[in-house]
Every structure is written in C-alpha cells, then in structure tokens.
Amino acid sequence: MYDFNYHKPSSSNAAASAVAGADDGKFLAGGQTLLPTMKQRLAMPSDLVDLAGCDLSGVRVDGDNLVIGAMTTHDAVATSAEVQAHIPGLAALAAGIGDQQVRNRGTIGGSVANNDPAADYPAACLALGATIHTDRRTITAEDFFTGMFDTALDEGELITAIAFPKPAACAYQKFPNPASRYALVGVMVAKTGGGVRVAVTGAGENGVFRAAEIEAALGANFSADAAAGAAVSADGLNSDLHASAEYRAHLVGVMASRAVAAC
C-alpha cells in the first residue's frame, strides 16, 4: 500500500470538499474493494475520505419508497425490519452478499458506486427501478449503470442514498461463481407498478442489464415456466474460465424461473 492522507469529515458536504481539494481523492465507504486494491498497489489515491462520520446510514420509509442511506451496511439492510417488511427480496439479496465479514463492512452506496459487473445490488436497483440520490442530483438506475465499473457519477460526486419503490413482489436468485462466490449469474425479478422488470448481473459484458425476452414472457404469463421458456441470447454475455456465454444465457433463464417461483 502506498502512503495516503486520511480524512474523516462529519458531513457529506465536508467529504465532497475534501475530495475536491485533493490531488487524487477517493471516498472510502466500506472499503471492501478499494482497500484490497490499494494493498495490491493497484490504486494509489493521494487522499482517502472516510464517510463513516457523515451520517449517511439508515433505512427509512418515505411514502411508496424505501430510502436506504449510502453507508448502510449489507448486514444492516439484510436485518432491517423495514426492508424485510416492505421489500423482503432486497433483504434476502443483501443477506447473500459475500460473507458475514464483508456484510458487516460493505455498504450499499459503495457497491452501487463501484458497479462491479458481478455485484448483486445493481440487479436490485435496476429491477426495482431505484433512484440514486447524490449530493448533486438524482439519477434513475436506468441512467446510472453505464458499463463495467462505470457509472453516471461525475468526478467527486457522492451517493447519499438509494430510493427503492416498493414492488408488489420481488425475488433475487444468484448462481455463484464457485471460486469467488460473486454472481456468475444473478437475476432479480420484480413485479412493479411499471410491469415486470427482470435485471441480470454477472452475465453481461457491460454489467447489469434488463432481460427483455424474459420480461415479455413474464408480462404475458407470470410463471416459472414462462421464465424458463424464454430464450435468452448469448450475444453480449461474458465467456471466461468459469462459464461460457451459452451457459450463462441458460442460467439466466433458470435463475429467473427460480426467482419467479420465490416471488
């Protein structure tokens, strides 16, 4: 790890200023990706701005939305009575991220900002039609995830919260990479006011995406068989050591089908 300056401001405004004032400042949320990368000397930020003191964590109900603070840990989401009551599929998703140590440190804001193509939360945001709140604006999930490890966030822009509209039902099914246990394929199916939305993580070359074929099939007939029967194209899916694009395409159907059954 290279040397860096450490800051722990007590507000998100101060945090944004600290990053803006640094040569190459980075926000530190749960640090579950950033710190290992720094230890491997693959990242060398001049300044780390720790968000732990910025009062960004917590879950609240705001009308038809569940609003989750950016610094809320995966464990806090998984065990939140509000999340379990209003979007149990989201609580279950959070309970399946990494291991308990990761869930105790990792945060929803950090995960969404990082947009790892095999992370779980992007599928939830996209399927549930979430809105990402930053210190500057709000961004719909549709516009937010712009590609592998790439988001609509501008330089120095800070996620403060994520608002999830309550769905009629939703469920997430993950097929873990046997080695890393990240999603080889993860599928979130949600019955929302805007119809059935199906988001897929782990599989796409450009990160999370919506599976139009399955959404159409489920829109006509919301059943596990309909999801399994919808042919998913392997075009644009990842092929690597662990799975071919064809296998991933097949698993998208299987996971979608199991998610429907779990809805």
Partner: peptide, 10 residues
C-alpha cells in the same frame, strides 16, 4: 489465470 481465490476454487 487462476492466481487468486477469485478464480482458483478451494
């Protein structure tokens, strides 16, 4: 290619 626990499955 399997140089870490991300890719080498124990």
């Amino acid at each position: 290619l399997t140089g870490s626990y991300m890719d080498y499955c124990m």
